[in-house]
Simulated assay, not measured.
Amino acid sequence: MSISFAFLLKHIRPFGTSGYDTFCSVDLANFLIGNLGLTLGDIRVLYTAWRGVALSDAQSAAIIDCAKDVANARWGQLQQTTGSTVMFLSGIQLQDLSNASLGQSFTWRPASKIAVAVRIDGGHGGHHARWDVEGFSGNTDSQGAICHFSDLV
Rank of each mutant, 00 (worst) to 15 (best):
S2R: 09
I3Y: 06
S4T: 10
F7P: 00
L8N: 00
L8R: 14
I12W: 02
I12F: 02
R13K: 04
R13E: 15
G16A: 11
T17G: 13
T17W: 08
G19K: 03
T22D: 06
F23M: 04
F23Q: 02
F23N: 12
C24T: 15
C24Q: 15
S25G: 10
V26Q: 12
A29P: 07
F31E: 04
F31W: 07
I33V: 13
G34Y: 11
G34Q: 03
N35E: 12
L36G: 14
T39W: 07
L40W: 01
D42K: 08
D42M: 12
I43H: 08
R44N: 12
L46H: 11
L46T: 09
Y47A: 05
A49D: 10
A49P: 06
A49E: 13
W50M: 13
G52T: 15
V53S: 12
A54L: 08
A54G: 10
A54R: 03
L55D: 09
L55I: 09
S56N: 04
S56V: 14
S56A: 08
S56R: 14
D57H: 07
S60F: 00
S60V: 11
A61L: 04
I63G: 05
I64A: 07
A67Q: 05
K68G: 03
K68H: 06
D69V: 12
D69G: 13
V70I: 07
A71M: 08
N72M: 11
A73T: 14
A73D: 05
R74S: 06
Q77D: 14
L78W: 09
Q80Y: 01
T81C: 04
T82K: 09
V86Q: 07
M87R: 00
M87Q: 02
M87H: 02
S90P: 11
G91I: 15
Q93V: 09
L94D: 11
L94M: 11
L94F: 15
Q95M: 12
D96C: 12
D96P: 13
S98Y: 14
S98R: 15
S98T: 15
N99A: 15
A100S: 11
A100M: 12
S101K: 10
L102D: 02
L102M: 04
W108T: 03
W108G: 09
R109L: 00
R109I: 14
A111N: 04
A111P: 13
S112F: 08
S112Y: 12
K113M: 14
I114R: 01
I114F: 06
A115C: 10
A117L: 05
A117S: 08
V118C: 02
R119M: 01
R119A: 01
I120Q: 01
D121R: 00
D121P: 03
G123F: 02
G125Y: 08
H127I: 09
H128K: 08
A129W: 08
R130V: 04
R130F: 01
R130Q: 08
D132H: 02
D132N: 15
V133Y: 10
V133G: 00
V133I: 04
G135D: 04
G135H: 00
F136R: 03
F136H: 02
G138E: 05
T140D: 06
D141C: 03
S142T: 09
Q143W: 03
Q143F: 04
C147T: 00
C147Q: 07
H148R: 10
F149K: 01
F149Q: 01
S150I: 05
S150C: 06
S150P: 00
D151A: 06
V153I: 12
